[in-house]
Design a protein around this nucleic acid. Structure first.
Length: 262
DNA sequence: GAAAATGTTATCAT
DNA sequence: TATGATAACATTTT
């Protein structure tokens, strides 16, 4: 067990937490080496059938939006980090019981404060990979089609958090994409010109890619143009913030740069 | 130390 | 029935 270390979050290297799609994609990359490995033991407080995992070989490590998927023959685990979830690879978080601990011959994988579900079948039967912003199968045309099918009056804030359309987008991505395409968060989707819809379908995956790159370099927040910024990163105009949309999520915007439609 | 927050789902009220 | 408000879950940062 000498390879297992414990670290406090303050002294640890990267904070392995906080979940929007790109962060989950990074988690997938960090653990893809587990494919083909056998689970020696499974534990943690999550109420899944841990015994079922013993001796089972991982057939795939996947992600869809904010879902992290550990696949086995005939079933898979779906882990969602929610708002406060975190994970450690080859480490244990001090003073925390994991929701899930998978022990392998070499590494150990720990998940904390998250939702763990065991589902039957294969992810391919359930997930539409073309809506995953980080997937090579992402399909902007399909997103545009879904955007056009929304009922009138749907807000742009809600749409950019809709996991069926922009799987993996979270509040940061929402804020930054609206700022990039210069759309005011009060706008409704049906009122957007076609060019703005196309811009949304382009920038959502583009910003997600940037998020991914910057997050890996630990410079994500340095690049925020509007999210949590007192002034607009483009024009310097003082920014505003309001709790908007169905979830009343904090939304930052520049009323100078971002145009209201609808 | 209170408040807020990179999220979702269940339940109750209207 | 459908929509919406609210609760619930639990951790770290500001």
């Amino acid at each position: 067990m000498a390879f297992i270390t414990t670290r406090t979050s303050s002294t640890g290297p990267a904070r392995k937490s906080m979940p929007e799609g790109p962060s989950i994609f990074i988690l997938k990359e960090e653990t893809i080496f587990l494919e083909g490995q056998k689970v020696l033991s499974s534990g943690g407080y999550s109420k899944i059938d841990h015994k079922r995992l013993n001796g089972k070989k991982i057939t795939g490590i996947k992600s869809w939006g904010k879902h992290y998927l550990i696949c086995f023959d005939g079933f898979y685990l779906r882990i969602h980090l929610m708002m406060f979830g975190s994970y450690r690879i080859n480490e244990r978080k001090e003073g925390s019981e994991p929701a899930l601990r998978l022990v392998f011959k070499r590494p150990e994988l720990n998940f904390y404060t998250c939702s763990v579900k065991m589902n039957e079948g294969r992810p391919d039967e359930v997930y539409d990979w073309t809506s995953d912003l980080m997937s090579p199968e992402w399909n902007a045309r399909r997103a545009l089609k879904k955007l056009r099918q929304l009922k009138a009056g749907t807000g742009v804030c809600d749409v950019l958090l809709d996991q069926e359309i922009f799987s993996g987008s979270g509040n940061i991505i929402k804020n930054e994409v609206l700022h990039r395409i210069r759309v005011h968060p009060y706008s409704t989707v049906d009122a957007l010109p076609a060019a703005k819809l196309r811009a949304m379908a382009k920038e959502a995956p583009d910003y997600s890619r940037d998020f991914y790159t910057w997050k890996k370099q630990f410079v994500l927040r340095k690049h925020w143009m509007i999210y949590k910024k007192p002034v607009c990163g483009r024009c310097g105009h003082p920014s505003e913030k309001e709790h908007l949309g169905k979830g009343k999520r904090l939304t930052f915007f520049c009323s100078n740069c971002q145009v209201l439609y609808g």
